[in-house]
């Protein structure tokens, strides 16, 4: 066990965990930030996507020892009032079915749009291809990313 000083959603947090503990489980079990979801645990589905220094990252395979001084942003910290353009677009398009994968989808979309503010539909498809939605809301995700790009 070791102490880690983390910067999560703009706040400093200290946790005492094993070096190999994935960021996902630190967020969920140690910090109570359960908006970041567990689903595959092997970087295949994207449900656990958070931002590490602004980059979309699979938190399920990110050991806490590798996080260092990086700024971590989770769905809870994406915006203060749930009014990030991507969240607003998701609400406007009414994307979710079960909703479980959507936090990861939103985090991936937000990081992608920051890097590519005016994407083509093909670029949206490529970027969002790393997140699985078992309910099949892909059409709406695509529509919402395009809307967020337009309205931000």
């Amino acid at each position: 066990m070791a102490n880690y000083n983390l910067k999560i959603n703009g706040k400093s947090q200290t946790v005492d965990v094993e070096d190999d503990t994935p960021l996902l489980w630190v967020l969920r079990d140690n910090l109570g930030l359960v908006g970041t979801k567990f689903s595959c645990g092997i970087a295949q589905c994207g449900a656990c996507t958070v931002h590490v220094d602004g980059k979309a990252t699979f938190s399920c395979v990110t050991p806490i020892s590798s996080v260092g001084n990086s700024e971590v942003t989770t769905i809870e910290g994406l915006s203060e009032e749930g009014n990030h353009p991507v969240q607003k677009a998701w609400e406007e398009v009414d994307v979710a079915q079960c909703g479980y994968c959507q936090a990861g989808q939103i985090m991936n979309a937000a990081a992608f749009l920051k890097q590519n503010p005016n994407p083509s539909m093909e670029e949206i498809d490529n970027a969002m291809n790393r997140n699985i939605c078992r309910c099949g809301t892909y059409h709406k995700i695509r529509e919402a990313v395009a809307l967020a790009a337009k309205t931000k």
Partner: peptide
């Protein structure tokens, strides 16, 4: 619209 939308998109423990 989905009545849980806001909670889903802000990561509430649902």
């Amino acid at each position: 619209k989905n009545v849980d939308a806001k909670d889903i998109y802000t990561g509430k423990p649902l």
